[in-house]
């Protein structure tokens, strides 16, 4: 599904070059739930940006479903993101001028011929528990509700890959686990998920865990037991690699 081969991303810092991602390689099979764990500034979000084609690598290559995204034009890359990738950010990233339902429908404008319809948007909102809030504007939603709308938006075009950048970073513990349960269910239904977090407690949800430190990426051998709290319906075991 995803192959990251020797990717480096350097930025010009004051007086020196900073390697945010340093020769990272990563393999994500279809149906996996890959977690990239790291502290703030470790380069994990940059790696996620590289995987999603939002950041161009300094060297190395990223392949999604066999396509080297470094060779794709801006437009082709945008089409790939609209069709194949659902993105959930740390902040909700909802458009403040649209009610929840229409926020969920925004990606349908970017993916003509996709599965997104108003009724599907309602179904997804119902699935994330927001049936009653479809007409609410983001300013009136709680952080957890906004996050769930953002997840619904990520799912509307039926992507095969869900990328989540610290999706539970600003949530309380209960809401955090509700969101993670939802991710786990999606994963069990076959969705490939790549998520970065600084919270090691979430490692129990992953089928594969990477740790990132100062730009270097390393694979952490499992299993990954929960430390403080086991989510109610978290299923053990990972699907087989592709």
């Amino acid at each position: 599904m995803i192959e990251v081969l020797g990717v480096t991303k350097s930025f010009r810092g004051p007086g020196r070059e900073v390697r945010a991602v340093d020769d990272a390689s990563l393999h994500v099979g279809k149906g996996e739930f890959v977690l990239i764990l790291g502290r703030s500034g470790s380069g994990k979000s940059t790696l996620l940006g590289l995987i999603a084609g939002l950041v161009r690598p300094t060297s190395g290559s990223v392949r999604i479903k066999g396509n080297d995204i470094g060779l794709l034009s801006d437009n082709s890359l945008a089409e790939l993101r609209a069709r194949e990738i659902g993105f959930v950010f740390q902040f909700s990233g909802l458009l403040p001028t649209l009610p929840a339902l229409e926020n969920v429908l925004v990606p349908t404008l970017l993916c003509r011929g996709g599965p997104g319809t108003r009724s599907r948007a309602r179904e997804i909102l119902a699935r994330v528990g927001l049936t009653e809030r479809e007409d609410a504007y983001p300013a009136t939603l709680s952080s957890g509700e906004m996050k769930r709308v953002a997840i619904a938006r990520a799912l509307i075009n039926g992507p095969s890959l869900l990328i989540a950048d610290e999706p539970t970073g600003d949530l309380d513990v209960d809401t955090e686990y509700e969101i993670m349960d939802l991710f786990r269910q999606l994963n069990l239904e076959g969705m490939t998920i790549v998520m970065v977090t600084h919270n090691p407690d979430l490692a129990c949800f992953a089928t594969r865990l990477y740790v990132m430190d100062r730009g270097k990426l390393g694979l952490e051998p499992g299993p990954f037991p929960a430390k403080d709290r086991e989510p109610g319906n978290a299923a053990a075991g990972a699907p087989d690699d592709e």
């Binding site: 945008a78 069709r83 990606p107 970017l110």
Partner: peptide, 16 residues
């Protein structure tokens, strides 16, 4: 800008 960047992140082309 963040809202627009977000649109681009979820698949909006520059032309959109």
């Amino acid at each position: 800008r963040r809202e627009i960047s977000l649109l681009r992140a979820i698949g909006a082309k520059k032309s959109f």
